[in-house]
Amino acid sequence: MSTQEFTLDDLRRILLEGAGADEGVDLDGDILDVRFEALGYESLALLETGSRIEREYGIVLDEDLLTDADTPRALIAAVNEHLAAVPRAA
């Protein structure tokens, strides 16, 4: 049984693909504990991000998760929890 890990780099890539990056925001910086709102992502951007994560990793995230996980660290942890609970076939 192998579980995939969802990393900060994965999140960065998906954020950029789905919602781009605001002027003056450096996604390559130390963003783990910066609130998504402060990074320039509103609820639609997070909705788009969530749906891209679901598509790519074959998981279904709770609707509440995207509003509750308001920093990259919280979202990454929540996604990894799902990935551990629903292991993919190797």
Binding site: E17, G18, G20, A21, E23, L44, E48
Partner: peptide, 8 residues
């Protein structure tokens, strides 16, 4: 335009 605006 900033990349933030392009996907939307």
């Amino acid at each position: 335009l900033p990349s933030r605006l392009l996907p939307q």
